[in-house]
């Protein structure tokens, strides 16, 4: 099934490529189109809910989002193009009347265990409605014991819930070049387990990026040193994450106005 989708994506891509020169001849170079980064609905569906977010938006209170993450939650030197900021933009578009505040807390080399210890203090300082916790990469790179990793995620989620915020977990990036060096599966699995246990929505960044790569939307194998690809991927991630949050908070398009 998956391979069928991949083939379809490739065929579409080939069709686009074939069509491109013709179009270029017709019209003088329009602005580059937004990258197609559709995400299959099942990757954005969550059975879990975000009651605090729902309440805040419905009561027209400011929605205060805190992103806690490692270096893959930003693009060095281009923070405004990274997915947290893009998500904020997308949320503002969805709820024009609402105030949406964003703070980003990066802990570059922190494992889940180290980060989990700082979460309560962060929540006390920033008073967020929603904490988006991106984690797993540092742990996978350091090959932390998956059981310890699970315990840390578990403790972090419990602490955040205890401090009265909603939580969304964001897992690792799909990074094909380092696949032979970083073993992601145990960390992906354990995040899934904690998410299930605590009914926390899990934004499956890994599966989504893999899907984009398989469909040919992005060449994630690229050796390019430029930030273009990173910006495009983050723009798509930001939009998908906003959609995911809106969906989990049951704030369909009906409530937008």
């Amino acid at each position: 099934m998956k391979s069928a989708r991949t083939m379809l994506g490739l065929m579409l891509l080939a069709a686009c490529l074939a069509a491109a020169p013709v179009r270029a001849g017709d019209t003088p170079d329009p602005a580059p189109p937004a990258p197609p980064c559709d995400v299959p609905a099942y990757l954005l569906a969550s059975e879990s809910s975000l009651p605090k977010v729902t309440d805040a938006v419905k009561a027209n209170q400011p929605l205060n989002v805190l992103v806690v993450g490692s270096r893959s939650s930003t693009i060095l030197g281009n923070e405004a193009s990274a997915y947290p900021a893009m998500m904020q933009t997308a949320l503002k578009e969805a709820f024009p009347a609402a105030t949406i505040d964003l703070s980003v807390e990066l802990q570059g080399k922190g494992t889940a265990e180290e980060t989990a210890g700082t979460l309560v203090k962060l929540v006390e300082a920033k008073k967020p409605t929603l904490v988006i916790w991106q984690t797993g990469t540092v742990d996978a790179m350091r090959a932390v014991d998956p059981d310890d990793f699970r315990t840390a995620i578990n403790d972090g989620v419990v602490a955040l819930r205890g401090a009265g915020t909603d939580v969304v977990l964001v897992n690792l990036q799909y990074s094909p070049r380092t696949e032979t060096m970083i073993s992601a599966p145990p960390y992906l699995d354990n995040m899934k387990v904690v998410a299930q246990q605590h009914d926390v929505p899990l934004f499956d960044r890994f599966a989504i990026m893999k899907q984009w790569s398989d469909a040919g939307y992005f060449d994630l194998f690229s050796t390019s040193h430029g930030v273009d690809l990173a910006k495009k991927v983050h723009a798509c991630l930001g939009r998908a994450l906003a959609k995911f949050v809106i969906d989990a908070a049951h704030l369909g398009p009906v409530q937008q106005n």
Binding site: S72, I182, L229
Partner: peptide, 8 residues
Amino acid sequence: ENPLYSEE
């Protein structure tokens, strides 16, 4: 040296 994967 893809900036997307500077962390990895």
